[in-house]
Write a protein that binds this DNA or RNA. Structure first.
Length: 143
DNA sequence: GCCAACGTTGGC
DNA sequence: GCCAACGTTGGC
């Protein structure tokens, strides 16, 4: 892990925009965020940071993929009012086996994850320790 | 589809 | 500045 790098988790309903959509687009603007806390997290992202792509509001919500921040916050063109930003993300991979919310809840070292304690926040930080535990499960060959 | 949790709005 | 009403998110 590179020192100073930050890690994130970003939610999207797969019916609207999924990891497979991102695979095909390769790079996409992460638009539509209309929550101040989520927006502030977007603004804290730096080029080169990594983020999990989380599928929300589905039968089995889960971490589905990995992406990289390739452009830092800039105005969201889909926002009617000023003050809302987006970042650009690049597809890195879709995990062969997703890690479901149900499984995450059963990992004792992850009980403090924002995901488990502020379930409505759509853009959230992941600590380096949490990131490693998750990556070890999601991508055991790599890393 | 339901509803708990949370965020926002607006009257006072 | 409080808080009731309302809207949204997201797990189930």
């Amino acid at each position: 892990m590179i020192k100073g790098m930050a890690y994130w988790l970003m939610k999207s309903e797969p019916d609207v925009f999924s990891i497979e959509h991102l695979r095909h687009k390769k790079v996409a603007g992460w638009d539509g965020v209309r929550n101040y806390q989520a927006r502030n997290n977007l603004r804290a992202m730096r080029k080169g940071d990594f983020a999990f792509f989380y599928h929300s509001s589905t039968k089995s919500p889960a971490i589905a993929g990995l992406m990289e921040i390739v452009r830092e916050a800039y105005p969201d063109p889909t926002a009617k009012d000023p003050g809302w930003d987006q970042v650009d993300v690049r597809f890195v991979k879709a995990f062969v086996r997703e890690l479901s919310l149900h499984e995450i809840k059963r990992i004792s070292a992850l009980q403090k994850m924002v995901l488990l304690n502020n379930s409505r926040l759509s853009v959230q930080p992941v600590t380096p320790g949490e990131w490693k535990i998750l990556m070890d499960r999601l991508d055991p060959q790599n890393d």
